[in-house]
């Protein structure tokens, strides 16, 4: 049973967007800060820092979670996906990102990484979600300048597009 001292910075190794990375964290370091300040992955944004706004949403072993309510030391050896991993390496946007762009589903863009990470898990679990199910899934992400209708439209466009490609 390892006990990490409060002032001790320990090595945390994880898989970030399919790449093995590591950094140092003291026990109290939040995953959100670890990603941004230790690993330089600043795509994950920090809003309220107490689990309400959803801006810091990342995926832990595939599940959308609040990175501000998770400690860096808790993700040792696990798989984290962030907004940086959505587009192709050549910069081609994912269908979801492209739909956000086409539907004007963002304005300042601060909340967008959180929305994208939530929706990316949601779309893996629901093939044909209703509007109510989409809005329910989005209820944990707050946008203060855009329009939730445009975000819902982007989700629906993504579903249509992915279906037309696969069928």
């Amino acid at each position: 049973m390892p006990r990490l001292n409060k002032d001790q910075r320990s090595l945390v190794s994880l898989t970030l967007n399919d790449e093995a990375v590591s950094g140092h964290a003291e026990p109290r370091m939040l995953l959100s800060d670890f990603l941004r300040h230790e690993l330089g992955a600043t795509g994950t944004h920090v809003g309220c820092e107490h689990g309400v706004c959803g801006a810091c949403t990342v995926r832990l072993d595939g599940k959308a979670i609040r990175s501000c309510l998770t400690l860096a030391v808790q993700v040792q050896g696990r798989k984290i996906d962030t907004v940086e991993g959505l587009a192709d390496r050549d910069g081609t946007l994912s269908p979801l990102q492209q739909a956000f762009r086409e539907c004007f589903a963002l304005q300042c863009g601060f909340c967008t990484p959180g929305f994208l990470m939530t929706i990316s898990e949601f779309l893996e679990q629901y093939d044909e979600p209703s509007d109510a199910e989409i809005r329910d899934a989005l209820s944990g992400n707050i946008c203060r300048c855009s329009d939730y209708n445009a975000i819902v439209a982007a989700v629906k466009q993504t579903i249509r597009q992915v279906k037309s490609v696969t069928s």
Partner: peptide, 21 residues
């Protein structure tokens, strides 16, 4: 804000957890 400082124990069993408590 950021959490205050604390030691961190990852318990591997209930026994280890209640020992720490």
């Amino acid at each position: 804000m950021k959490p205050p400082t604390f030691d961190y124990v990852r318990a591997e069993s209930v026994q280890e957890a209640v020992q720490t408590l």
